[in-house]
Simulated assay, not measured.
Amino acid sequence: MNDQLKAIFVKAKLNFAILAIILLIAILGKLTNPELSNAIFLSADQLVSELYLVFIAITLGAFVPNFKLVAFGSVGVFVAAVALVELNVFHYFTIEYLFAVLIVVLGFASIANLYRHYREYGL
C-alpha cells in the first residue's frame, strides 16, 4: 500500500470508526428493530435537505483541526439534549429525532474531515 494512503488511514482512523459505527447501527437496527431504525434513518434522510445543518457539519469537519473535539462534542451535545428532552424542557423534540441529527452531523463531519486529510496529500 502506498505510504500516503497509510498516513491517511492513520490520521483518519476516527473518521472511519464513526462511519463504520453508523453503518453498524443501520445493520443492527434493521435486524433488531426495523421500525425504529427506519424511522430514525428516514428522519436523517429528511434532515439532509436542511442545508444549514449539513453546512455546519461540513464546516466543523473541514475546519476544526482537532476532530476529536467535533466527535466528542457532538456526542456530548446529544447527551445533554436527550437529558433536556427527558426533563421536559424540549417538548417538540424526540430522542429519535436527536439521534438522526447526530447521525447526520457526525457523518458529514467525518466525510469532510476525511476529505481534508485526503487533500493534504494531494492525491
Rank of each mutant, 00 (worst) to 15 (best):
K6Y: 07
A7T: 14
A7E: 15
F9L: 15
V10I: 13
L14G: 01
A17P: 04
L19W: 03
L19G: 02
A20S: 15
L24W: 04
A26D: 05
L28A: 12
L31N: 09
L31D: 03
N33Y: 08
L36R: 09
L36K: 08
L36A: 02
L36Q: 05
S37D: 14
N38G: 03
A39H: 13
I40R: 07
L42N: 09
S43L: 10
D45F: 07
L47Q: 10
L47K: 09
S49D: 14
S49E: 11
E50C: 03
L51Q: 13
Y52H: 11
F55P: 03
I58R: 05
T59P: 01
L60W: 10
G61N: 14
N66G: 00
F67R: 01
K68E: 15
L69H: 01
A71P: 02
G73T: 03
V75H: 02
G76A: 00
A80S: 11
V82D: 08
V82T: 05
A83Q: 08
A83H: 08
L84S: 14
L84A: 15
V85H: 03
L87K: 14
L87W: 13
F90P: 11
H91I: 14
Y92V: 06
F93A: 13
F93T: 10
T94V: 10
T94A: 07
I95H: 03
Y97Q: 05
Y97F: 13
Y97H: 13
Y97L: 12
A100H: 12
A100P: 13
V101Q: 12
V105T: 14
F108D: 05
I111L: 15
A112I: 14
N113P: 07
Y118N: 05
E120Q: 09
Y121Q: 06
L123W: 06
